[in-house]
Amino acid sequence: MKILATDLDRTLLPNGKWEGDGGAIELFNALTEKHDVLVVYVTGRNLKLTEDAIREYGVRHPHVLIGDVGTTIRKYEQGGWRFDEGWVTHVKRVSPRWDAARIKEAVFDVDGIKEQGSEHLNQFKQSYYVEHDRNDEILKRIDTLVKGRFDEVIVYSFDSVDNKGLLDFLPNSATKQTALEYVAEEFGAEKGQVVFCGDSGNDIFPLTAGFCGVLVKNADEQLVKNVKAVMDKNPNLKAYFARGDCKGLNGYYTSGVIEGAYHYGIFQ
């Protein structure tokens, strides 16, 4: 079993400020089909936004969609999506203190955050926009109100294209990392058989969880520093930093995903 998992925005999708390679998406589609790879998208996008991306950029449908920053899992079968109810049961069992409504109440008066629209929220995801230039102050305040009370993780990332700080409260059992571990176990794959590709702050967990990590060439500088810091403490951690020297590709976005897949032998 070979699993290639990848974030979407500015990882597989060329929607950042860097110039992507023409034809890279078509090559990704062809290579994953040729080499019989199980494709998993691991994204902050909800289902509608994921389908929008598939139509807009021409990327293939994945076999598995880990959406909403790891809080939902769907399988693509016979031309349609099947929601994984087992994942919901698992999260509720492992994170019994999780309560999105109580988290919302706890941070209601925090200055500098704004709740995201309902389409970006679900039973396991409470999300906000953050004034990025004040993020240290805001996150310290939030820690005092929330941290450790709700079986939660607090994930902060920065969207450099839209210049927005993004804050997600998630159950500690429903992150990009834990959802990918759940999928890998379901398909009988060990972590060393799973390649995960990312570019930004909320990819730090799966990139440092024991999978074969890939950081595309346009990865956020802070993410690169954080991953390297973890590697210094754990020499067994596998993380590959795309350079742009594979098959004539420049290493940005889709090309970095392809380069990483070749590096780990997903593509021969």
Rank of each mutant, 00 (worst) to 15 (best):
N122L: 15
L249Y: 04
Y129C: 14
T50L: 04
P206Q: 12
F158G: 14
H132R: 13
S255E: 07
N15I: 01
G188A: 01
N202S: 12
L65N: 02
L8K: 00
P14F: 00
E105K: 14
L47T: 14
L4E: 00
I138V: 09
E137W: 06
R149T: 03
H61S: 06
D133V: 10
G58H: 08
V107Q: 03
K48Q: 14
T72E: 10
R149C: 00
C212A: 14
W87E: 08
K238S: 03
L237V: 14
D36Y: 03
I258T: 00
Q78N: 09
G22S: 05
Y41H: 13
L249A: 06
N29P: 02
G210I: 05
Y57N: 05
D232I: 04
T208G: 14
W18A: 15
L12T: 01
N29Q: 08
G23C: 09
F187R: 09
K225L: 12
G70H: 13
Q177C: 08
F187L: 06
Y128Q: 07
V39P: 01
R141Q: 04
V94S: 06
G67K: 06
G22Y: 02
G112W: 06
A184I: 04
C246R: 11
L27K: 03
R45F: 07
K147Y: 10
C212L: 11
I73C: 11
G44A: 14
D84Q: 13
K75H: 00
K125N: 09
R134F: 01
V110K: 05
A184W: 11
K104M: 08
W81L: 04
L13E: 07
S127Q: 07
P14A: 01
I266E: 02
W98N: 04
V107Y: 02
K140R: 06
D68E: 13
G58E: 02
L223S: 07
H120S: 13
Y156P: 08
D232Y: 02
P171Q: 07
Y252N: 14
E26C: 09
E19K: 15
H120M: 08
T43L: 01
K164G: 14
R243L: 04
A24Q: 02
F28C: 01
F28Y: 00
A101E: 12
V257H: 00
N172W: 04
V94G: 07
A100M: 09
G201C: 15
G22H: 06
R97S: 03
L47D: 08
L47M: 12
R82M: 01
F196T: 14
D21V: 08
A219I: 08
L121S: 14
F267L: 06
T89N: 15
N29C: 04
H263P: 05
E190T: 10
Q126A: 15
G67Y: 08
R97T: 06
F211G: 03
A101V: 12
F196I: 14
Q193A: 13
K2S: 03
E56Y: 15
K34M: 09
Y252V: 11
E181C: 11
R10E: 04
K2M: 07
N202L: 10
E185Y: 01
A239E: 12
N122P: 12
R243K: 15
Q116L: 04
D220Y: 03
K238R: 11
N218V: 09
Q268W: 11
A209T: 09
K104G: 10
E26P: 05
W98C: 01
G67C: 11
M1F: 02
L31P: 04
D52Y: 09
S127A: 06
Y253L: 10
Q193T: 08
G23I: 00
L170M: 13
T208V: 09
V37P: 00
R149A: 04
T144V: 03
H61F: 07
